[in-house]
Design a protein around this nucleic acid. Structure first.
Lengths: 215, 215
DNA sequence: CTATGTGAACAGCTTCACAGCG
DNA sequence: CGCTGTGAAGCTGTTCACATAG
C-alpha cells in the first residue's frame, strides 16, 4: 500500500477517528464497532471500514476493533507515533495564542521556536511554562537545522505571508500550516494546509442564506 | 437554482475565488479569465467555469469575467453582501486573539459580543479599539436576540464545548465555527464548521511520513 | 448472531471537448 | 481568434450487500 493510493478524504477522517478513539479509550471502552465510531462522527459504518481497510485488516469480526491497538495503528499511519518539532512565525495575537496552545503537544507536536521580524517583539516571552522567546527571522535556518524542524506554522499578516513562506522553505520546512488569508506558492515537495478563519464564517453564511429568490 | 443543488466543493472554492478576485481588483485588473483565476489557485479553467456557471452566466466569451461584478456576485451568493453580527464564547488565548482579528471585519463579520464563565474574566476588555468586554454566558440569549446574532465562534476547552454549543443553539445561533477538538452534536438546522488546529498538523505529518516500509 | 472486509453498483465531482458568442 | 458555457465522458469516493470469521 503506497501513501499515494490513499484517498485524501480518508486521511482527513483518520484524524477524526483518532480523536474519537481517544475519547472511547478514556471512557474505558475496550473495543469499538465501525457502527459506533461512524455514529459519533455522522459517518456510515461502511465508510469507517473502507477507510481502515486501506491499511490492512485489524478488526475482529463479531467484535469490532480494539481501541488501544487501533489508536496505535492510526498514529503510526499519520506519523504521529513520535514527537515533531515545529516552528512558528509571527508572534501577533494569533501566533502567541497558538504558541501557548496545549492541544498541539498532546498530539505530538512541540512548538520549539517562535520567530518575528518586529524588533519590539524579539526576546519577548511567548509561552511562560517552557520559556519560549521570540527570535529574529534570520536565525530560522540555523535553528531549524539544529532542532531538526520540518513543520511550521505561519501566522503573519497577509502581505508578508508569501515571503515568509519562502524563508521557511529555505530553512528546510517541508509542511506549513498557513493562517494567512492568501494562497501560498511553494515548490513541489512542500505541503501547505490552509486555515482561513473568515472562510469558515463565509461557508456558514452561505448555508444560512438559503432560499434566495433567484440566483 | 436551489442552494442544495450546489456541490459543496464549489461553495468552498467560492470563498477562495473571492479572495483572489479581491487581489486582482486591488492590482487594478478589470477582467479575469477562468484560466488566470484557476492558475493562481491550482485549479483547471474548466473547474472555475463550472463552479461559476452554477449561478448563472456572467462571463463574456472572448474576454472573461468582470472582476468587480464577479466579486459582487459571489458576495451575494455567499450572503456576505451584508454585515453579520457574530458572538464568541471563550476568552482564553485563542478567543481573545480571534476577537481582535481584523480579517473578520474585512469580510463582513463583526464580533459584537464575547462571553465566558470564568468570573475572573468577566468585564475585561478584549478588543481595545471597539471596547468589547467579556460578559457572563447567561446573558447570551438576551444579547443574541437584541443584536440579531445568528453566527457564533466557539473556543472553549474541549470538555465544555458540547454544553456551550447547546447554550449557543438555545440563544438562537444557527451556525458555529468550532475550535474545540471535539465533534459537536447539534440539532438539524444548525451548521457547524470545525477547525481543529492539531488535525492540520497531523495531515502534514502524514504527507511527510511517506514511503513507510510496509503498512 | 454480530461485525468485518470487499467486490459491485452507484453517486458526485472533475475533466474533456466543442459549439457558440463577442 | 479567445474564452465562455455545457453536454458527455471519465474518475474518485461512497454505499450496498453479502460471503466470511469469530
Amino acid at each position: 500500500m503506497k501513501q499515494e493510493d490513499v484517498p485524501s478524504p480518508t486521511v482527513r477522517r483518520l484524524s477524526l477517528y483518532l480523536r474519537e478513539l481517544e475519547t472511547f479509550l478514556t471512557s474505558g471502552q475496550v473495543t469499538v464497532s465501525s457502527k459506533q465510531l461512524g455514529g459519533v462522527l455522522g459517518l456510515s459504518d461502511a465508510q469507517v471500514r473502507k477507510d481502515l481497510a486501506h491499511f490492512g485488516q485489524f478488526g475482529q469480526p463479531g467484535v469490532g476493533y480494539h481501541v488501544e491497538a487501533l489508536i496505535r495503528r492510526i498514529r503510526q499511519i499519520l506519523g504521529t507515533d513520535r514527537t515533531w518539532n515545529v516552528l512558528l512565525v509571527g508572534s501577533g495575537n494569533l501566533g502567541r495564542a497558538l504558541a501557548a496552545y496545549r492541544g498541539f503537544a498532546r498530539k505530538g507536536f512541540r512548538i520549539v521556536a517562535v520567530f518575528d521580524n518586529d524588533p519590539a517583539k524579539i526576546g519577548k516571552l511567548v509561552s511562560p511554562e517552557d520559556g519560549l522567546t521570540v527570535r529574529p527571522t534570520h536565525e530560522m535556518p540555523a535553528v531549524a537545522e539544529r532542532l531538526g524542524i520540518q513543520l511550521g506554522v505561519l501566522c503573519v499578516p497577509a502581505q508578508m505571508a508569501q515571503q515568509v513562506a519562502e524563508d521557511m522553505v529555505n530553512a528546510g520546512v517541508k509542511g506549513i500550516v498557513n493562517f494567512a488569508p492568501v494562497t501560498l506558492n511553494v515548490p513541489p515537495g512542500v505541503a501547505v494546509a490552509g486555515v482561513d478563519l473568515a472562510v469558515q464564517l463565509e461557508q456558514l453564511s452561505f448555508r444560512l442564506s438559503s432560499d434566495r429568490p433567484t440566483w
